[in-house]
Design a protein around this nucleic acid. Structure first.
Lengths: 204, 204
DNA sequence: AAATTTCTTAAACATTTGTTTAGTTTTAAA
DNA sequence: TTTAAAACTAAACAAATGTTTAAGAAATTT
């Protein structure tokens, strides 16, 4: 791993836990064990570094669900199940990064960055939209509010992971309980959302 | 409205839109049209001001749902409907403040503030938890995952309001569309969540 | 009316911020 | 081996940060 990547890794960690404004370039340099000037040398500015961080991570979660759309060997609800599992896995593993994205999204400065982030998040939503739409057309699904159904799917998972403190309190767990990367909790969430989506989407 | 309150109002606005670290005390002073020193004079520090902001707003949303628990003239699902309407209304009207809370919650510094915030958010969750629990006990509701059902209710509404940009993109609306305080969207959200909760909670 | 407390101000304070500079070392090519 | 580009460093830069100070104005109490 070259220095550029080391810096990006430290930036993901620190931006994720302390926020963009809450992290100084010196914090990042110290964590990455490089000279402060290297950040501007490689990335030009703190803001450009942020954009690099977003791009870097975005490249990992590109178009996972596109091929699902035209898959004929899976029923619509089976596709939804797969999407749920993927989303739970992704959000649980990269919760820091997801918070970073959502935190920036909820701020009103740096509009071009907000656009970039919302585009990234949307890229994964559109195929799912299509799958639900097709499910309705085929008669497999009820005529639900597609956009808000998607919002439910993502929002449920996202909300629980807002913070470990919050998560513990919602679930009534003791201070020692660490929710992220918790296999049991992942499974519990997966099952809840699947059940929820079945009762919501499937015809009775 | 005295100067203390004017400062708090400006702080809510600016912390909400630009974040805690992204807002300087001079920004707040300028918006409130007071001298910078007044902030430290009244509140002691920027951080104390933040705590005051949280307390100030928290006092408005205290225990709205507690009286619902023992209400005998409403069916469990009717209670849920009321909760949904209240929550949609509350989140849509104070989306800035809610973002402020959730943004701070997802950061790892200022742990005592995180605790305070999660306690506030939880105060409104616990009565709902009880209502669902009683509904299950009475046989009106299916034996669902109570905590995650709550997460779905809040998460769905919250996720859509992450940002106006995001909201527009999810819903496929044009740039001019302003989601917050939009009556139609409020109604649409209310109906979606109610439908969702009925199919999820009620026995077939 | 005098005294005292409260409010308000402009200026200054010490840090911290992101960034740049000017120089050095390392690496690779000619 | 010389040369040129790339990587790296310590120091300095100006601007912005939260906070304090010391003085004055306004309000309240005595």
């Amino acid at each position: 791993m070259n220095k550029k990547e080391i810096i990006i890794q430290s930036a993901i960690k620190l931006f994720g836990t302390k926020g963009f404004e809450g992290t100084s370039v010196r914090d990042i340099a110290a964590d990455a064990q490089v000279n402060v000037a290297m950040i501007n040398y490689y990335f030009g500015s703190k803001e450009k570094l942020f954009e690099n961080v977003v791009e870097y991570r975005a490249s990992f979660l590109k178009g996972i669900f596109v091929e699902l759309i035209n898959n004929k060997s899976l029923t619509p609800i089976e596709k939804i199940d797969i999407i749920i599992d993927h989303t739970v896995e992704r959000k649980f593993s990269n919760s820091q990064f997801h918070h970073l994205l959502h935190r920036e999204l909820s701020l009103e400065h740096r509009p071009q960055l907000r656009d970039a982030i919302s585009d990234i998040l949307l890229k994964n939503m559109n195929p799912v939209k299509t799958i639900i739409k097709n499910g309705i057309k085929d008669g497999a699904f009820q005529p639900v509010d597609i956009e808000l159904t998607l919002t439910t799917l993502l929002g449920t998972i996202h909300y629980l992971l807002t913070s470990d403190t919050m998560c513990r309190k919602i679930l009534g767990k003791k201070p020692g309980f660490s929710p992220f990367q918790n296999k049991q909790l992942k499974k519990r969430m997966s099952e809840h959302v699947k059940k929820l989506m079945r009762s919501h989407l499937l015809k009775i």
